[in-house]
């Protein structure tokens, strides 16, 4: 898909390339923004902002970097900037902050009590683990892509996911397991 988009850009069809880019990256850009901001409304705003930036910068994309790497970097930076703008003193590593943000979210009520518990358990994860879980499970992506989205090494993503699993299991009442070698 990325190759087709880059090909359209090189062929001087930026509008078509942009439409394809939005269709291909909408969920991923939203996912990055949501993982960092913890709020659907804020993530939506940032996703819009990111695509506007991409539209403006599309002509400058020279194809030397991977399209996805370029887009993820823009999305990540936009989300981090938005977080600094909106809550300069708060951090999403604060579990209550994340829970509050999600509670304020206008959409996606958990479908049932189990989902509610699971959602709250995800909200109690440390920020890095929560981000990895959100992006990994949003579309059951390869850890390599999650790593690219977050701008961290693949092994770090694996570690975050592994530890998140342990924490979630405990939070949901499973017997605590000892983590070995992670």
């Amino acid at each position: 898909m990325d190759e087709a988009i880059v090909e359209q850009l090189r062929a001087g069809r930026p509008a078509e390339a942009f439409d394809a880019l939005v269709a291909s990256y909408r969920r991923r850009v939203f996912g990055v923004a949501y993982a960092i901001l913890g709020s659907r409304a804020a993530a939506e705003d940032v996703a819009q902002e990111v695509f506007v930036k991409l539209w403006r910068a599309l002509g400058d994309f020279d194809g030397r970097a991977k399209l996805s790497t370029w887009i993820y970097a823009i999305a990540r930076n936009a989300a981090i900037s938005a977080r600094r703008r909106e809550r300069p003193t708060a951090s999403l590593s604060d579990e209550a902050t994340f829970a509050d943000a999600e509670a304020r979210s206008a959409t996606m009520p958990p479908a049932n009590e189990d989902d509610e518990r699971l959602w709250r358990a995800v909200g109690t994860l440390p920020e890095t683990q929560r981000q990895a879980v959100i992006l990994y499970y949003q579309d059951e992506r390869p850890v390599e892509e999650v790593a690219a989205m977050l701008g961290i090494p693949v092994n770090t993503v694996k570690t975050h996911l592994h530890r998140a699993r342990g924490r979630l299991a405990v939070a949901l009442g499973a017997p605590e397991r000892r983590e070995v070698g992670t």
Binding site: F30, G31, A43, A47, D115, L118, V122, V133, I134, Y137
Partner: peptide, 12 residues
């Protein structure tokens, strides 16, 4: 369950 929950994460 996580995949089902997180799959709903999308723009409005």
């Amino acid at each position: 369950r996580l995949a089902r929950l997180m799959s709903t994460l999308d723009a409005a």
